[in-house]
Amino acid sequence: MSEAPQTEPRPDNGRIIRRLLLTVAGMFAFGFALVPLYEAFCDLTGFNGRTRNEAAAVSTHQVDTSRTVNVQFITRNAQGMPWDFKAEMNSVRVHPGETRVVNFLASNPTGSNMVAQAIPSVAPGEAALYLNKTECFCFNQQPLQAGADTAMPMQFYLDPDIPEHIHTLTLSYTLYDMTANATPDVLAQMAPAN
């Protein structure tokens, strides 16, 4: 390449290439950074019906008897999950601030010990922020021996700040087979009975 008479100073090629490659690496990392960013965004806004995955403080709120909200329960099994899984009632009417316990019934009809994990989702997503669970089977993996059944409690209350226009909310649990990925302490719970 012949040396052209330059009319303006220009950065050398190497510097531009280094900067562009750095940008490429940065954007690749950004793609992965979207994962925690998305989590944080969902936790913050209730976007996508996420509920908090840890126990909320016990309700100290005044029960607001002037309002009643219908809380519906849906249960489903992920593909390949053989357990029977249902809520003891389809829905419950609660006053905001009032604490209720609902049992979810599960049975393991198979001939082997299994571990399950329930994943909650709330619709409308907006309501997810106001659904506080003080105790839930969904916080942990749930072991169940072959042929056994169990009642798994979920204790919750609605934050009295829940927007006026929400009259019904739906809490859905999807049950996944986690036997292959069970945590050691859950396996230990199941071991003595074997």
Binding site: L20, T23, V24, A25, G26, M27, F28, F30, G31, F32, L34
Partner: peptide, 11 residues
């Protein structure tokens, strides 16, 4: 291209 092809690669 520089900004989004790496995001596709990540996906």
């Amino acid at each position: 291209l520089i900004a989004v092809m790496p995001v596709l690669a990540g996906a």
